[in-house]
């Protein structure tokens, strides 16, 4: 037999893994089984995550740990406060605008009514005076209204 063949056979010969290999591997990726204290490892099919799950879990845990950093927490809280304040300011501005528009409408109605009724009273006075006194004799009322 050639020496090369012997070397190959020796190299490719089946070897039993060390007894704690599985436990060490799982411990390294953080998935040690609850029964790990007794040295028993849960069945690999049940506890071992698939590669895609492992990536997701890893991303989420990284994100979570990033979010819980004090600086990020403060920044997020400040941003939330700013958004809240802005929302309150906008709501108040809208409410004030609505109030102002309502007040403007009321003002228009009030001035119209006041003006209309005032003019009507003055017209009545003038009409009665014209009928009673065809000559341009001024009464106290007309003198006063003209003065005002």
């Amino acid at each position: 037999m050639k020496p090369l063949e012997d070397d190959l056979r020796e190299a490719l010969r089946r070897k039993e893994p060390p007894p704690d290999l599985a436990e060490r591997v799982l411990a390294r990726i953080g998935h040690i089984s609850p029964t790990g204290q007794t040295g028993q490892v849960s069945s690999p099919a049940a506890s071992r995550p698939t590669p895609s799950e492992a990536v997701k879990t890893s991303t989420w845990s990284r994100l979570r740990s990033w979010l819980w950093r004090p600086g990020v927490r403060w920044a997020l809280a400040t941003a939330a406060c700013c958004v809240l304040i802005a929302a309150v300011v906008v709501a108040r501005q809208r409410a004030q605008r609505a109030r102002a528009e309502a007040a403007r409408e009321q003002l228009e109605v009030a001035l119209q009514l006041a003006s209309g009724k005032l003019n009507r009273a003055f017209r009545e006075v003038r009409r009665v005076e014209r009928i009673e006194n065809p000559a341009p004799a001024e009464t106290k009322a007309t003198r006063r209204t003209e003065r005002l």
């Binding site: 228009e108 119209q112 209309g116 003055f122 005002l148």
Partner: peptide
């Protein structure tokens, strides 16, 4: 100002109220 007030009748975007 009564004069100014009386002149507002029919203005301000509100139609004349036809009070007379």
């Amino acid at each position: 100002d009564l004069d100014k007030l009386s002149k507002l009748e029919g203005h301000l975007g509100v139609p004349h109220l036809d009070l007379d």
